[in-house]
Computed example of a mutant assay.
Amino acid sequence: MPIWQRTIKLALAFSLAIYFANQLGLSYASSAGIIALLNVMDTRRSSLKIANQRLLAVVLAFLIASILFAIFGYHLWVLGLYLISYVPLAHRWHLATGIAPSTVLVSHLYGETSIAWEWLTNELSLFLLGTGFALLVNAYMPSYQGQLDDYHQRVEESLRAILGRFSVFLDSGDGRNQAQMIDDLDRLLAQAQEVAILEERNQLFQQAHHYQLHYFSMRESQAQLLRQMAGQVNRCYQASQESRVLAQLFRQTAQELSQTNPAQGLLTEIEQRRDFFRQRALPQTRQEFETRALLFQLLNDLERFIQLKVNFYQHYQEEEGI
């Protein structure tokens, strides 16, 4: 969330919570604004999750505080005893995020020396107002779809460039490279996944944006295979008919690489090239043998590279209509 947008949301939630708390005649109205500030999160889902946890934390705090105040009275040491009792339970039940706002509300009861229903209602109303306006301002979240579409394009362009570079190396029999393009792709995928996570966490009632996370995860797996293949290409020092055939297959894969391509036809092409390799005459020298083995391994890794996309496409073709 951009800082300017977060600032506006915090100001709105804070002001509205205090205004309506005053309009309702609630005591300690400013506390509603503080609670609103604490509940404005970066995504809709995190805001709703925190709000639920803090509501349970408030109920638990009121229960413990009411019992202790009723038994021992309104003394400072009783407030300490409340914290000794409340904090471990809040952590045990994963409600620690509500310790601070709950204790502020309990301190109001201590200050008023009362656990009468009207005071409990006052404090609960403060919490509900603050939380409610925090959720209200967080109902609007910017869409990251435009950024995700851009990342799709940039990732695919990077993959095409790497596959194209491999084809050049295989054509020439010179595989010297430092895998810099793969390092850049890794960084790009990490950025894309961060944005995809933000977009997914802004969806409360649909899981469609799991697609984005899975898509970039699939591309990440492909990038790992490319790094492995880069090491193999580095060891190909001799151009041959087999390497040129494989280079053509890398070029074809680069040309057909896209989000919407099912890639099934490329698997057929690979099987045909595998038959070609098997029908070739046996290598005559040790270097030819090692090069042939590397090329065959590259062919297998390229098949795995394409199979990742095929599996992804088959999984989502009905759900996403891609």
Rank of each mutant, 00 (worst) to 15 (best):
E319K: 10
E118G: 02
Q287S: 12
R244W: 07
A208W: 14
T260D: 15
S243A: 04
A13M: 08
G173F: 05
L10Y: 15
I182G: 01
D183Q: 15
F20E: 14
E220M: 13
P2Y: 01
A11L: 14
L12I: 15
S27E: 15
K309V: 00
I3N: 14
W93D: 03
T103A: 10
S102F: 09
E194F: 10
L204P: 00
T113E: 14
G231K: 14
I182A: 02
A247F: 02
I8A: 04
T253S: 04
V59I: 15
E157P: 03
S15G: 04
R6Q: 11
F62K: 05
G173S: 07
Q145M: 12
L95E: 09
T43Q: 03
Y74I: 01
L55H: 04
Q178Y: 09
Q228D: 12
L294T: 07
F72R: 07
S30P: 02
E290C: 04
I8W: 03
I34Q: 00
Q207W: 08
F250C: 06
L257I: 08
S217M: 08
I8P: 01
L126R: 02
I18G: 00
S243Y: 08
Q212K: 10
E194G: 05
R278A: 11
L136P: 00
A70H: 12
Q212N: 15
H315K: 13
N39C: 03
N300G: 09
R6T: 01
I99S: 08
Y28E: 08
Q297Y: 11
Y110E: 10
C236D: 10
S31K: 09
S114R: 06
H210S: 09
M141G: 02
Q191Y: 13
L257N: 12
L266M: 06
L163R: 10
A61C: 04
A281N: 07
L38M: 14
H108P: 01
S167H: 07
L213I: 15
R54T: 03
Q264R: 13
E256Y: 05
V78T: 04
Y151A: 03
T285A: 12
N234A: 09
L249A: 03
A223W: 14
E118L: 07
A29L: 08
L68D: 09
L89Y: 06
W77V: 05
A11V: 13
F305Y: 15
W4Y: 15
G98A: 01
A223T: 09
E256T: 10
I270W: 05
R235V: 14
F277C: 01
K309G: 01
L189D: 07
L128F: 11
S107V: 05
Y211T: 01
A139L: 13
V245Y: 06
L189N: 04
L225H: 08
S15M: 14
A179R: 14
N311H: 13
E118F: 08
S221Q: 13
V78G: 00
R45I: 04
A29H: 04
H91G: 12
I306K: 04
A100E: 11
I322L: 15
L48R: 06
S217A: 11
Q255D: 14
M229V: 02
V155I: 08
Q264V: 06
L148N: 00
N311Y: 13
Q248Y: 09
L68N: 12
A36I: 09
P2A: 06
F127K: 00
Q252L: 07
T260R: 14
Q259M: 10
D42Y: 11
A239S: 10
A223Y: 07
G321S: 07
L185I: 02
Q232Y: 11
I71M: 09
L163S: 05
G33H: 06
S258L: 02
